[in-house]
């Protein structure tokens, strides 16, 4: 494998194949050596099976998220880790829809994805995971994760750069010894900031480490229309059209919750 210096990393796709398509094109135009996705291919949006041809055609290298393990292994729920009854109600609707609309070949494909990937990016040892290196569905929020905890993860897992997603909100923290933790955000839904774009990250080592978060516009009215025709909850459609989360809010820590509308 040739040495990589610049990669595009996508977080949860949540069935948003329109954003995935836009992100692949955007990343190609910006010039990257490879495309990665950190899992949670399904959830929330319409037509799960439309995601997989794009991933394969453009050689997007994926790892499993909690959703992919659940769908791939016919589990009864998404293992999202929500704790609130209302959040779990919507998580169940989303999971049932995605499960019923994912064909068996795609389920098998997800089942065989690795849980993590390690890559060399310039001089940096990169560890790609979904939630955290120690637990697939651990929520690492910017405001509730101490820097010395991240140092511990980097030490324990022998990584210079840890890339994750799962929470749905991007952030980056520099650690000692030019090490880094990056949550790359998600393509699946906007970031609870009142804007309709979604986010992904370009990570490079030329030779210095740099992360750029890319705001990505896509045809979100078309996604909303498809979600309505698939009879997905109005609350989900509202998030796509307004940029404010309406569900899955109770896992947010105070600081992240305050930034949102609900």
């Amino acid at each position: 494998m040739p040495e990589m210096e610049r990669i595009a990393v996508f977080g949860g796709i949540y069935n948003n194949y329109l954003a995935l398509d836009a992100a692949i094109q955007d990343a190609r135009q910006r010039g990257v050596d490879a495309l990665y996705c950190l899992g949670d291919l399904g959830a929330f949006g319409p037509h799960p099976d439309r995601v997989f041809p794009l991933l394969r055609e453009h050689a997007v290298q994926c790892i499993q998220g909690n959703y992919d393990i659940s769908i791939g292994n016919d589990l009864s729920d998404c293992q999202c880790g929500y704790t609130d009854p209302r959040d779990n109600y919507f998580a169940r609707l989303s999971y049932q829809y995605t499960y019923q609309h994912t064909n068996s070949a795609n389920r098998d494909w997800m089942k065989d994805l690795p849980g993590q990937r390690r890559r060399q990016l310039g001089r940096y040892r990169v560890l790609m995971c979904h939630g955290s290196p120690r637990r697939m569905n651990e929520f690492l929020w910017e405001s509730t994760t101490s820097t010395h905890f991240l140092e511990h993860l980097a030490d324990a897992h022998q990584a210079d750069v840890i890339l994750g997603t799962h929470t749905g909100i991007k952030w980056h923290r520099q650690l000692s010894g030019d090490r880094h933790f990056v949550n790359v955000g998600v393509l699946g839904r906007p970031e609870n900031d009142g804007r309709t774009n979604v986010w992904y990250a370009i990570v490079e080592a030329r030779p210095e480490f740099r992360v750029e978060f890319i705001p990505l516009a896509y045809d979100h009215p078309a996604l909303a229309a498809e979600m309505r025709s698939e009879r997905l909850p109005d609350e989900f459609v509202e998030t796509v059209l307004t940029g404010w989360w309406t569900t899955c809010l109770e896992v947010l820590p105070a600081r992240e919750r305050r930034r949102g509308k609900w």
């Binding site: 880790g81 704790t83 609130d84 637990r135 569905n137 929520f139 896992v251 820590p253």
Partner: peptide
């Protein structure tokens, strides 16, 4: 923990 029910984030 701060989670809204007993279950932790796992």
């Amino acid at each position: 923990s701060n989670a809204s029910s007993g279950r932790r984030d796992a």
